[in-house]
Lab assay of single mutants.
Amino acid sequence: DETGKFLVLALYDYQEKSPREVTMKKGDILTLLNSTNKDWWKVEVNGRQGFVPAAYVKFL
């Protein structure tokens, strides 16, 4: 149950560059965990948590 969690859509592919980031593919649906930083949002994708560039995702 994803109640209270926001979902975001990956607009572009992103390859993680550090262990704190996660890789996503364009079209992936991600669970948004934290968006307090304007540049990097914490998400969960494929069972992994990490950061992606905020400009690469949008709210569903």
Rank of each mutant, 00 (worst) to 15 (best):
W40I: 03
V45T: 13
R48M: 08
K5G: 12
K25C: 09
L60Q: 07
Y56L: 13
L32C: 09
R20I: 14
V8N: 01
I29V: 12
L9T: 10
T23C: 05
F59H: 10
S35C: 13
D28S: 06
S18V: 05
Y12K: 10
T3S: 14
V57A: 02
V45Y: 10
R20Y: 14
K26D: 02
E16Q: 13
W40V: 03
D39Q: 11
K26F: 05
L30Q: 01
W40M: 06
L11C: 08
L33V: 12
G47S: 06
R20T: 12
W41A: 04
S18P: 04
T31G: 06
T3N: 15
L7P: 05
V45F: 14
S35G: 10
K5C: 12
F59R: 11
E2S: 14
Q49W: 06
T31S: 09
D28K: 02
F6G: 12
W40S: 03
Q49P: 07
V52W: 01
V52R: 00
G27Q: 02
T3R: 11
Q15H: 13
S35N: 15
T31F: 13
V45S: 12
D39G: 08
P53C: 03
G50A: 02
D13N: 07
E16F: 05
Y14H: 04
D39L: 14
F6S: 12
A55W: 08
E44M: 09
I29D: 01
A10Q: 01
K5M: 12
K38V: 11
W40A: 02
P19F: 09
F6T: 14
K58I: 15
N37V: 05
K26H: 06
T23H: 04
A10C: 10
R20L: 15
N34P: 03
I29Q: 05
G4V: 15
V8K: 01
F6R: 14
Y12S: 10
D1C: 14
E44Y: 06
L60T: 08
F51R: 03
V22F: 09
E16A: 15
Y56S: 11
Q49D: 06
E16L: 07
P53D: 01
E2T: 14
N37Y: 08
Q15M: 13
M24Y: 02
P53Q: 02
L30D: 00
L30R: 00
S18M: 07
A54R: 11
R48F: 06
E44G: 06
N37G: 11
V57D: 00
Y14L: 01
D28L: 04
T36M: 11
E44K: 07
K58G: 15
W40F: 07
N46H: 12
E21W: 03
D13A: 05
K25F: 09
F59W: 09
D13H: 05
L32A: 04
G47F: 05
A54V: 06
A55D: 11
P53A: 02
T3W: 12
Q15T: 15
K38F: 07
D13F: 04
T36G: 10
L7G: 03
N46C: 08
V8M: 09
V45I: 15
I29F: 06
T31Q: 10
L30N: 01
T3V: 12
Q49G: 06
D1N: 13
D28W: 09
V45D: 04
V43S: 00
M24C: 06
R48H: 07
D39M: 11
L60D: 07
L60C: 10
G27D: 06
L33I: 15
K42I: 14
G4N: 13
V22R: 01
R48Y: 06
T23F: 04
D13I: 02
G50K: 01
E21G: 11
A54F: 02
V22N: 04
F51G: 01
V43I: 08
E2D: 14
V52D: 00
D28E: 10
P53E: 02
V52C: 03
T23R: 05
V22P: 00
L30G: 08
L7H: 10
E44S: 09
F59K: 11
T23G: 08
W41M: 05
L33K: 05
A10M: 02
W40N: 02
M24H: 01
N34D: 15
A55Q: 11
K42A: 09
S18R: 08
V52L: 02
Y12F: 14
G4L: 12
L11V: 09
G4W: 11
A55V: 10
Y14M: 01
F6M: 15
N34C: 10
W40K: 02
M24G: 00
D1S: 14
N46S: 09
K58Q: 14
R48G: 04
Q49K: 10
D13G: 05
V52G: 00
L7F: 14
L33M: 07
T31H: 11
V22G: 02
V52Q: 00
G50T: 01
E16K: 14
V45H: 15
T23Q: 04
K25Y: 09
S18D: 13
R20P: 05
A10D: 00
V22H: 03
E16W: 05
K25M: 09
Y56G: 08
K25D: 04
R48E: 06
E16P: 14
K42Q: 12
G50D: 00
G47W: 02
T36P: 04
E44Q: 10
